Every structure is written in C-alpha cells, then in structure tokens.
Amino acid sequence: MALETTLILFKPDALQKNVTGQVLSRFQAEGFVIRGIKMMKLSDEILAEHYAHIASMPFFPSVREFMQETPVIALALEGENAIARVRDLLGPTDSTQAAAGTIRGDFGFKDSDSKMRNVCHASDSPEAAAAEIKRFFKEDEVFAF
C-alpha cells in the first residue's frame, strides 16, 4: 500500500448543513491523519484554476456561485491509499446515486438538480492531489509529524 496525501474540500452545503465535524470524524475513524486544515473563501481566480476543465462550460457560473456561497474547509489527509479510500468513503459524485453509509449517501442532497451539492470534493489521482494541495495550501501549512 502507498502512503498518500489527498485534498478534500468541504463544500458550502457541508457547512450549511453543519455536518463537517461528522464527516471529519468518519475520515479519522478510518485512520486518516490531518496534515493541513483551514477555512477559506474561494476567489474567482482559484475557482477558475481548480475547475479549469469546466470553466468554459455554460454551467460554470452556477458552480462558481455555489462554491462562493460560504467559505470552504480545505483538508489535507494522509493515509494508506488515501485517494481511493477517501473516494470510496464519499461514494459517487452524484449524491442521488450514493448508497446509505457513504458520506454523500448520508449527507448529500437527494434533489437531482443539486448534483454539485455533494458535501466534499476529493482528489481523483496522485497528480491531482499534489496540484490541488499546492493550490489550496502554502508549503508551510501542510505538516508532517
């Protein structure tokens, strides 16, 4: 197994529903270690960079608006095979398809028009995790013990 650090963003719906503590507890119960955590407001620039793959799409303004409804919590988590395991814990991106017992199944919106309201973003590859951690954290904000 590979020791990995992944990025999680607690999205505005997680903060609005006040479930961030419950979700973080699930990650910690699985043995993940917090390497960095902070609350921040996302600028237009960081959102355009983070969502570069969809920034030219007609629905991107609604994604940007949603992600700026509240601050988000950025979390760098470390653990064995963290990227795949975190994504398994979260469940499918579409909360309406997420099984009970997954984070999105338990806390995500079940309205089919709210697919972006799915509690957390999580890195999908080691390369994405490295780029995303660098995007959301300064070098001195991620710690090793």
Rank of each mutant, 00 (worst) to 15 (best):
I37Q: 03
T70A: 06
R117T: 00
L89E: 10
L3H: 13
G79K: 04
I34F: 01
I73K: 02
A29M: 11
I133S: 08
A52S: 15
R64I: 02
A98Q: 07
E80V: 14
A144P: 00
L77V: 07
A52H: 14
F10G: 00
I34S: 03
D13M: 04
I8T: 09
A128P: 05
E127K: 13
G21N: 08
G79D: 07
M40R: 04
M67K: 08
D94R: 15
V86D: 00
F59V: 08
T93D: 08
M39C: 05
T96S: 12
M116T: 06
V23Q: 00
E30M: 10
P61R: 11
G21H: 02
I54E: 05
F66E: 06
P61H: 09
L7T: 03
A99G: 13
T5Y: 03
I8W: 00
K115V: 11
I103E: 03
A2F: 12
E141S: 11
Q28K: 15
E65T: 13
L3F: 10
T102F: 06
M40G: 01
D94S: 11
K110T: 10
K110I: 02
E78C: 09
A129F: 07
D88G: 08
K115H: 07
A2D: 12
V19P: 02
Q22V: 03
D88L: 12
A131R: 14
K110W: 00
F107S: 03
R104K: 11
F59G: 10
E141H: 10
T6I: 11
A98N: 09
L7K: 03
S95Q: 04
L7N: 02
I73Q: 01
S25M: 10
F145D: 13
A98F: 06
E65N: 13
E80W: 03
E141V: 09
F27H: 07
V33Q: 13
P126R: 12
T102C: 08
T20H: 07
N18F: 04
G36Q: 02
I73F: 01
A55T: 11
M57D: 13
R135S: 12
T6P: 05
S62L: 03
V86Q: 01
E69Q: 15
I73M: 11
I37F: 01
A55N: 06
P61I: 09
L47H: 08
A52D: 13
A131I: 12
I54C: 09
P12Y: 05
P58Y: 06
E80G: 06
M40F: 00
S95Y: 01
H50P: 08
A131W: 03
A122T: 11
I54N: 06
I8R: 00
T6Y: 04
F107N: 03
G91Q: 07
L77S: 08
S43M: 07
A122K: 08
L15T: 05
A55P: 05
G31W: 04
V19M: 04
F66A: 06
V119L: 01
D13E: 08
M1D: 12
K115F: 02
E141W: 06
S112A: 14
E4Y: 09
F145R: 15
G36D: 04
F60K: 09
K11V: 01
Q97R: 14
S114P: 00
E30V: 00
G91E: 08
S114R: 10
R135T: 13
L75S: 03
D94H: 13
L15G: 05
